[in-house]
Design a protein around this nucleic acid. Structure first.
Lengths: 153, 153
DNA sequence: TGGGATTATATGGGCGTCAATGGGTATGTG
DNA sequence: CACATACCCATTGACGCCCATATAATCCCA
């Protein structure tokens, strides 16, 4: 499996270290397995993260926006200038910068949410609520979620 | 046969392991025969499962949504973070995560129901009742189930 | 074709490995 | 020196891998 999936809640120790879930580590390419990038989510009070390889993909997405729109500047400023690279130690742990922890209200525990090609880090309670809210929004259009899951080919 | 069909009831041992019915295992592609994905059924208190190949199709579909839309986040949260991948050991057994067992009220036995391209895991009693209920609904709504079943071609 | 032999499946349990976590110490940078 | 971070080692519990058994299914040959 080469996608970030499932949810994990890990502890942040006194030194600020937290384990990246093992299944997430395995997705990172062997070449850059000891480095990830982190940035503030645009839409939610959470941190988003992924392997360094995905930077190119993000750049492409932003490039697809209208170059002269305000969104273009806003996205490229908020994402690129705020991206932080962080190293993973031999035990699979890394440090979440203070500023990002503040942004996501993360204190002693970090909830990792798989999002396919990237992942999100939430305060466990906030993350739980976000999951419920987003599920509720989708259920309003029940058909679309069901189709997404069961549609053939 | 490349469809999940029929019903099986297997025991969950002390370690939480349960055998995936052999006929279900044989449907998984040889390449990914030792891994399946599980998630909560949307409409019933049961667990749904299938091979990982299906997940990749879902990922592709989500990836085609507008990256900056709310729907994109809702789908990827509801799907990727709620999906669990689990490994199948050499004897054909796997672990059902505690959270999913709770959701489906599964304790010591798991009932596997083939559903074509996927399968469901129920508490045996609940699953039995669900089968009866859905048959009853069918009989009521379509006046003649017999016609449907006996109709040729 | 009957019945013993072989194989497959479901199940149980021992044990080594790995993941998550904690902490001590060295290195480094202001 | 004070603080931050990287490296090393230790602990615990969960999980994967291996081996064993019982029952069921299949095969094979006289």
């Amino acid at each position: 499996m080469d996608l970030f999936v499932s949810k994990y809640i890990n502890k942040i120790d006194k030194k600020g270290r937290v384990s990246l879930p093992s299944s997430f580590r395995n997705i990172l390419p062997k070449a850059n397995r000891n480095e990830i990038i982190l940035y503030k989510s645009i839409k939610t009070p959470s941190i988003e993260g992924c392997g360094v390889g995905r930077l190119k993909e993000i750049a492409k997405r932003i490039n697809n926006l209208d170059f002269f729109s305000e969104d273009y500047d806003d996205f490229s400023t908020s994402i690129f200038s705020e991206i932080i690279t962080t190293n993973i130690d031999k035990e699979g742990r890394f440090l979440i910068p203070e500023e990002l922890k503040l942004y996501a209200s993360i204190k002693t525990e970090a909830a990792f949410f798989g999002q396919g090609h990237y992942f999100q880090i939430w305060d466990p309670k906030k993350g739980q609520k976000n999951t419920e809210d987003s599920r509720r929004r989708l259920l309003k259009e029940k058909k679309s979620l069901r189709m997404m899951l069961t549609q053939q080919k």
